[in-house]
């Protein structure tokens, strides 16, 4: 029996156009989804439960609408969920402390999360939570085997595969390729609406003071300059291709 915790986040679907309002990204007309890397984490958690028995608790910190990301996790097979509700946006340091506090109240053998969120792209929260809880972590996981207390994992290290051994309890973060997240079935989507979802706030966790410290402020937010119009080549076909290859290779450096 394994006590499994997944930490996750709701993000904007990156297919959507990004619009900036002052120092914030406009979230009004966009689709909010479960962060794709966290989706791998949820899938892996549910697979662990199916293999070893136990239960999966999904935890997030965010605005009330983040509930729908938790419901997605519940539809995929998590058993209960905790939403630490907060309208303010906080930095990674505070978020990690909040999640760690919420996790501490539960028993856990393993904590899974995504290796980064596609919106903020910081890759911080997983290792920070591990440090707060004083447990080891393995990041950018592409394979996970657990046998008793023993953990054997493969992690992606800039293209190389590292085979890492460790012990429970542990925190791991998911990389693309870890698994193929399941599509929730229609009945499970409906059942997920009835699974337990607990809402707590920062005061409940006794962290009001800890998170009120301002460590950084956003002073500017802008979009990269618009793509200039594409270049259509003309003339002899082979020369066109040569020109293209040279540009891709030497100037764009994408090959």
């Amino acid at each position: 029996m394994m006590n499994i915790v997944v930490i996750l986040k709701q993000t904007m679907d990156l297919e959507e156009q990004v619009t900036i309002e002052g120092l914030k990204i406009d979230n009004e007309n966009v689709e909010l989804i479960l962060n794709p890397y966290d989706e791998y984490a949820v899938e892996e958690a549910v697979k662990l439960k199916e293999e070893h028995g136990g239960g999966v608790t999904a935890i997030t910190f965010g605005k009330p609408e983040a509930e729908s990301a938790l419901r997605t996790a519940l539809a995929m097979g998590a058993d209960k969920a905790i939403l630490v509700e907060q309208e303010r946006e906080l930095d990674e340091s505070s978020i990690a402390k909040i999640l760690a506090a919420a996790i501490r109240d539960n028993e856990f053998d393993i904590i899974l999360g995504g290796n980064m969120s596609v919106d903020n792209g910081a890759s911080q929260v997983g290792p920070r939570v591990a440090e707060e809880l004083d447990i080891p972590h393995i990041s950018t996981l592409t394979k996970l085997d657990i046998d008793g207390e023993n953990v054997r994992a493969e992690r992606d290290s800039e293209g190389d595969v590292e085979i890492v051994e460790s012990m429970l309890p542990i925190l791991v973060t998911a990389q693309q390729g870890l698994n193929e997240p399941r599509y929730p079935s229609l009945p499970n989507i409906m059942k997920a609406k009835k699974k337990p979802l607990e809402k707590v706030d920062i005061e409940d966790l006794g962290l009001e003071e800890v998170v009120s410290k301002v460590r950084s402020t956003v002073v500017d937010l802008y979009q990269p300059p618009k793509k200039k119009k594409g270049r259509i080549f003309a003339g002899d076909l082979r020369q066109q291709v040569q020109k293209l290859v040279r540009l891709l290779h030497e100037e764009e450096k994408v090959v």
Binding site: I20, I25, G121, T217, P224
Partner: peptide
């Protein structure tokens, strides 16, 4: 300065630590 949203936007963050 750091890219966010896969480079669809850039953020400037000031340090207070």
């Amino acid at each position: 300065t750091r890219p966010i949203y896969s480079g669809k936007a850039y953020q400037k963050k000031k340090v207070h630590d």
